[in-house]
Design a protein around this nucleic acid. Structure first.
Length: 543
RNA sequence: GCGCCCGUAGCUCAGCUGGAUAGAGCAACGGCCUUCUAAGCCGUGGGCCAGAGGUUCGAAUCCUCUCGGGCGCGCCA
């Protein structure tokens, strides 16, 4: 309920006609310091060269003479912290609002109309998804759910890199395995796809075509199509099991078919941002903050990957009119951000509308050694396997509960052994506990102000506070694009619920109190289910 | 060599627009089920916040350097 605190501080600053002051409102480290605290006095002290304690006292007096005086109490601490203690009345009132408004309590008052695209996973259809992709998938999907809930118009997109050399290699790899299985001698190149799944696809091809492909001119194309479709289906199947969906699958090759790549390059040319050198066409990205200029058309006349990517992002912004585009990439692509943004600027598109989230790699721990995931070195674990071992909920929770900047280490053998220790069960258990109590209770009265006033125990107040804080975490999560804040809040709510449960009975002799408590835990269950749904995890009724 | 991310408890991670004795989960140890789910609750131990300087009333947080790890630095995608 920071929004209860902020107005009074701003009013104070306005009253004193101080210019912009960069103060913060935080949760104090311990409950004895109150519900909220601000460093206002200490920040001001520097600015106006006064003792922070004096400023704090002045602020306190100002509050006590304002219409806010009954909402919270203020205490001043050592260096100059101003601590706010919400009164139980304030908390009850706020809780009643939450109870009545349900999800709209957590949404913005003015629903944003912004059109946001989130592009994520976008793994090349050249092999199965591994747990690195799983991290990007869980984060992208959760962000989409969160922003969608807050009222943004969100489109989830998967970009299929189905053009270019990699695809040719995929087709070739498949064709070679096909020949091999038919008893021919082949040389399998090192940069071909080594995985067993290629052989499976080749086997399917033999079922369909017998040995007829050997004499066909377009054999590699047929192999490529088959491989691409098979792998894409496998990826989709994994995503479905991981509860990740997409609205749009955008094909890179369609950009070539529609001449969008060509037109984009022409546009850049006409704007004068290109030049020819060494038989190639270059884009002057250095004019827009890049280290060096980049090639658009190679000596051999083919477009670079950057060219189609510029066309793709031009399509996002100019053709489809997204107000904001969030690309979720692996951190290995970070060097690519500057050139793409530069290209957008060259096209006259505000590059700030493009937000690239770089998700750090997932490292595997095997026998106490870190191994980075690589498809080539075959040091990866398929997402399928992780889901099979610990389930979608536990797997998603691991990915979503960490900041995207953290270098995540996963020891799969440890995970298997201790999968029941996953904190997701702590939350789901809290929900299941509530549902079990609700089955036994027969109170269906709606909460009103007088009933809420019965909830005065420390554990009840703490539980209510944690529910109200969910709003802050949710909004911070959307603002910072960090879904882990949701998990953090849900864990706190669950903790408060378990503490309450262990100390107090919901169903008891006092009918009114029982009903009030039923209303309370119903609301807890509602918020837990809402929060879990925002990270794509099931709320369980029984465990 | 240059750039990005990171180094916090035995393990996995929060805290990093500078603030109050550095947090959580797991692991370890000790308690709590004749009463709504013990996948829970209560308690204990555990840290030169990689290291060294600096700025500041105040640094895990900001600056510089060093060490260690991951990833980039293609007319690959």
């Amino acid at each position: 309920m920071k929004f209860l605190i902020k107005p009074i501080i701003d009013k104070y600053l306005e009253n004193k006609s101080y210019e912009y002051v960069n103060y913060s409102i935080d949760y104090p480290p311990e409950a004895v310091f109150g519900d909220y605290s601000t460093n206002l006095a200490m920040v001001l002290a520097k600015k106006i060269k006064q003792n922070p304690i004096n400023i704090a006292q002045d602020f306190k007096a100002f509050c006590e003479n304002s219409e806010f005086s009954n909402k919270f109490k203020i205490k001043i601490e050592k260096p100059g912290f101003i601590n706010f203690f919400l009164t139980n009345e304030t908390i009850s009132k706020e809780f009643l609002t939450l109870y009545q408004k349900k999800e709209t309590y957590f949404q913005f008052e003015n629903m944003p109309k912004k059109k946001i695209q989130i592009e994520f996973v976008s793994a090349n259809p050249t092999g199965p998804l591994h747990i690195g992709h799983g991290r990007g998938a869980a984060i992208g999907d959760s962000l989409a759910r969160i922003l969608n809930f807050l009222g943004y118009n969100v489109v989830r997109e998967y970009y299929i890199n189905d053009a270019g050399y990699q695809m040719y290699i995929l087709g070739l790899s498949t064709f070679l395995r096909y020949k091999e299985l038919l008893g021919q001698k082949i040389e399998f190149p090192q940069d071909a796809y080594q995985g067993e799944y290629i052989k499976d696809i080749a086997r399917d091809l033999i079922k369909t075509y017998q040995d007829n492909l050997l004499s066909m001119d377009n054999a590699i194309d047929i192999c490529l199509d088959k491989a691409k479709n098979t792998i894409m289906n496998d990826i989709l199947h994994d995503m479905e099991n991981f509860k990740v969906t997409f609205d749009v699958f955008f094909s890179e090759s369609s950009l070539f078919q529609n001449n969008e790549v060509e037109h984009t390059i022409e546009l850049l040319k006409s704007k004068g941002f290109t030049y020819e050198k060494d038989g190639a066409l270059w884009l002057k990205t250095t004019q827009f903050n890049d280290d060096k200029d980049r090639v658009l058309i190679k000596q051999d006349g083919k477009y670079t990957y950057l060219s189609s990517d510029i066309a793709y992002h031009k399509n996002k912004f100019l053709k489809r009119g997204f107000d904001m585009v969030i690309d979720i990439w692996g951190s290995d692509h970070h060097g690519y951000v500057a050139r793409l943004k530069a290209a957008l600027e060259a096209l006259g598109i505000d590059s700030q509308k493009l937000i690239v989230l770089l998700v750090q790699f997932v490292n595997l721990i095997q026998e106490n050694n870190k191994i980075s995931m690589s498809t080539r070195k075959a040091t990866y674990i398929e997402l399928k396997e992780l889901i099979k071992e610990i389930g979608t909920d536990a797997a998603r929770f691991i990915f979503v509960s960490k900041s995207i900047n953290s270098h995540l280490d996963i020891d799969i053998s440890l995970l298997k052994k201790k999968s029941m220790d996953n904190p997701v069960y702590y939350i789901q258990y809290a929900h299941a506990r509530i549902m079990s109590i609700l089955e036994k209770s027969n109170c269906n009265n709606e909460l009103d102000e007088s009933m809420i006033k019965l909830l005065q125990e420390t554990e009840e107040i703490n539980l209510i506070k944690s529910l109200l804080q969910f709003k802050e975490y949710l909004h911070d999560s959307a603002k910072t694009l960090e879904p882990y804040l949701i998990t953090k809040s849900l864990l706190m709510i669950s903790e408060k619920l378990h503490q309450f449960y262990n100390k107090h009975k919901v169903i008891g002799e006092n009918k009114d109190l029982s009903c009030a408590r039923v209303g309370l835990i119903k609301t807890v269950a509602f918020v837990l289910a809402l929060g879990l749904s925002l990270i794509g995890i099931q709320a369980k009724n029984k465990m």
